[in-house]
Write a protein that binds this DNA or RNA. Structure first.
Length: 349
DNA sequence: AACACGGGGTT
DNA sequence: AACCCAGTGTT
């Protein structure tokens, strides 16, 4: 017996039209009220897209609101210092995003007219294929399809794509042309957001809500009750590392470290040091484990033991590049990684 | 193509 | 414990 719904075929122009109108009207009715959707602007779109990379909406919301208060437009952001900008990003992670956004603001605010082409945007720091398509479609109505993790999920389910992708990034690249073939020519920005919104609030990775899906008629795996089987991605294995951190106090405060080089991880962001200044190496006496914590960075699970060093010869210590002492007051002003701020607070309390 | 880059929510 | 989130840049 033939399923009535399977008569829809996105290769037929009239069904493509229905698909677009279905998902667009669903989006206009069901979209979440998010701060960057309230009174949208190019600037807000750019800031939100930078923050939303690999980062959940609920995490971004308070950062976004604070950011817009501190830096309401490109010019105010361009004028801010890097330290200030990093401090506003503290805890959000992927700090190169903040530096790239800051540099982007300096470039854009120096221009008489902001470009509206995909190519021009891709040339800006921190802007890749996703952000270029998102910004130009949402802010300039360019017909450029986004293909992020949400869209991959929606597309592989609609078409029951059985190809096994190496990883999410590979799937995004390969399915971009498919996304481009579906995009609504008249409402590209809303269409892009609709596809992502569908992935975010309906087409969940696990337990998708297919029964009320606006495009179930077009979704082959949804109709088969098999949506959860897609996308097919290869598993990646995690590494484990165990490291130690030093807790060293003097009358000048707590010893912190940040990578001085602008390219390296967490440069400008302080953490407890992984190694002690070499001048201290021979002079330490007592060690004590204060705290043991776990955290994940990329695909590495870290086990960090915080070791207290005491009874060292304080006067003979010379700090190498990257190290500094910080009083409690100074700690609050510096930018620390999110976990280290919490752990330090926990030890101090 | 593979890896580094943060942090956290969900299952 | 595994997965992955409105990805990008480097090697």
């Amino acid at each position: 017996m033939k399923n009535h719904r399977s008569e829809y075929n996105l290769k037929k122009p009239e069904d493509l039209y229905k698909f677009r109108s279905s998902i667009l009207s669903w989006y206009r009715f069901h979209k979440r009220e998010l701060p960057w959707r309230k009174s949208p602007s190019l600037y807000k779109t750019v800031v939100s897209e930078f923050m939303l990379q690999q980062t959940r909406v609920v995490t971004v919301i308070p950062y976004f609101e604070n950011w817009i208060r501190n830096y309401p437009d490109f010019l105010s952001l361009a004028k801010a210092s890097e330290d200030e900008v990093l401090k506003s990003w503290e805890g959000l992670g992927y700090y190169s995003r903040a530096r790239n956004l800051h540099n982007l603001a300096k470039i854009v605010s120096s221009w008489k007219k902001v470009p509206d082409s995909m190519e021009a945007w891709k040339a800006l720091p921190g802007v890749g294929p996703y952000i270029a398509a998102a910004v130009t479609s949402i802010a300039f109505q360019k017909v450029e399809a986004v293909c992020d993790g949400n869209v991959v999920r929606v597309l592989t389910r609609i078409f029951s794509i059985t190809e096994k992708f190496k990883d999410g990034a590979t799937a995004q690249k390969k399915l971009q042309t498919t996304a481009q073939s579906l995009i609504d020519q008249d409402h590209p920005g809303d269409f892009n957001q609709a596809m992502m919104e569908l992935g975010a609030i309906q087409c969940f990775r696990q337990s998708p809500i297919c029964l009320t899906c606006p495009v179930l008629n077009f979704c082959t795996s949804g109709q088969a009750g098999a949506a959860e089987q897609f996308p097919k991605l290869e598993k990646k294995k995690k590494k484990k590392k165990s490291i130690h951190r030093y807790w060293i106090e003097s009358d000048k405060g707590l010893l912190l470290f940040s990578n001085p080089r602008s390219k390296k991880r967490l440069s400008g962001i302080y953490e407890l040091p992984e190694s002690m200044p070499s001048s201290m190496e021979s002079k330490k006496e007592a060690e004590k484990i204060l705290l043991t914590k776990k955290r994940t960075i990329g695909n590495v699970d870290y086990l960090e033991k915080i070791i207290e060093i005491s009874n060292y010869a304080e006067n003979e210590i010379e700090l190498e590049c990257g190290y500094r002492w910080a009083s409690r007051k100074e700690i609050n002003k510096l930018t620390l990684s999110g976990p280290h701020r919490k752990w330090i607070q926990e030890i101090l309390d």
